[in-house]
């Protein structure tokens, strides 16, 4: 019973960089805590009331001392702030070429999809040594995707996408927690992230039921839902050609430019009237309620895969 952990496993690249900053901060915290404790202790003991006739000297203030204990902490927090912000940027910028996996949270389970088409519930298999980016949304309330061993966490919101990325450094099974309170079984909205050596991961991918990739599932949907009737690859249809638009700037009818990121694509499908592409009529029907979150993600994977 007594061999319980005091420190979490380090299983991702960001775990190392996070802990480095944490230990620095731990040093700072210890320094100040010990400083205050020791001073309070020494003063309280040394100057304890022994002689009731003793009248302490009047020390009103010492501006230089005040300045020092404003300036020194100030300098220190600037360092911590800068370091923390750099780390945050690292967390928020997935390296190019990261494998994109999709996550849907719902009360109270995690549904995941691999680009190769595998789907899992409350589990996510990832390869070691390769960056993985998760694109996430929720079907109902706010959840939060938290893998302590990777030191990553991101709230998962209904109605929009959020993302996070990590690169596992050690094979193993790690806790996946929902860390944003989401109702009755919040504490059961847990799962496992299984990090595997790349070769094992490829083997695992090969073993799954072959429904085809996410993009091909998306393409089937694209045809079934009639998107293809308007969005011809040639660009001659009633809607614009979708090849290569992902990540590009789109000129809108109101003169603004929108970046075609995941949220834009989502809005274009669910609420097409919100942003009209310049030069096109507002004729696209809404697909609100006709596609599930997972199907939306497949459509997105397809649109991303189409070459211009």
């Amino acid at each position: 019973m007594w061999n319980f952990p005091l420190f979490p496993q380090q299983a991702s690249t960001s775990a190392r960089s996070t802990d480095a900053l944490f230990f620095f901060l731990l040093g700072v915290m210890l320094f100040f805590a010990v400083l205050i404790f020791v001073l309070v202790f020494i003063f309280a003991i040394k100057y304890r009331r022994r002689d009731t006739s003793y009248v302490p000297p009047v020390i009103v203030q010492l501006v230089s001392l005040e300045a020092a204990w404003i300036a020194i902490p100030f300098g220190l927090v600037i360092v911590i702030f800068a370091w923390g912000t750099l780390l945050y940027f690292e967390h928020r910028s997935p390296p190019p070429g990261a494998i994109e996996m999709y996550v849907v949270g719902k009360q109270w389970m995690w549904k995941t999809q691999h680009p190769e088409g595998q789907r899992e519930i409350n589990t996510l298999h990832v390869p070691v040594g390769r960056p993985v980016k998760l694109i996430m949304t929720s079907e109902d309330v706010i959840h939060s995707f938290f893998v302590p061993a990777f030191r990553v966490k991101q709230d998962v919101l209904p109605g929009r996408y959020t993302s996070l990325w990590f690169q596992a450094t050690a094979a193993g099974e790690y806790h996946l927690f929902c860390s944003q309170y989401c109702g009755t079984d919040h504490a059961q909205m847990i799962g496992t992230v299984v990090a595997m050596e790349d070769a094992d991961y490829q083997r695992w991918l090969g073993g799954g039921a072959a429904e085809g990739t996410m993009a091909s599932a998306g393409e089937r949907l694209f045809n079934r839902l009639g998107c293809a009737t308007c969005h011809l690859e040639s660009g001659q249809g009633r809607g614009p050609a979708l090849g290569g638009i992902y990540g590009r700037g789109i000129g809108l009818a109101n003169g603004r430019v929108a970046t075609a990121d995941e949220d834009y694509l989502r809005e274009s499908i669910l609420n097409p009237g919100a942003k009209i592409v310049g030069g096109y009529p507002n004729v696209m029907p809404t697909y609100q309620g006709q596609v599930t979150e997972e199907q939306l993600m497949q459509l997105m994977a397809y649109i991303k895969s189409v070459k211009p």
Binding site: F22, L25, V40, G84, L87, Y88, V152
Partner: peptide, 29 residues
């Protein structure tokens, strides 16, 4: 005196939460 000690710990650990990169890990824990 108890206040000074405990508030010091509370305040210092607040720095961890104010640090963007660290809050990612400890937030909601």
């Amino acid at each position: 005196l108890g206040f000074i000690g405990l508030f010091t710990i509370g305040g210092l650990t607040g720095l961890v939460l104010a640090t963007l990169g660290l809050d990612i890990h400890v937030h909601d824990t």
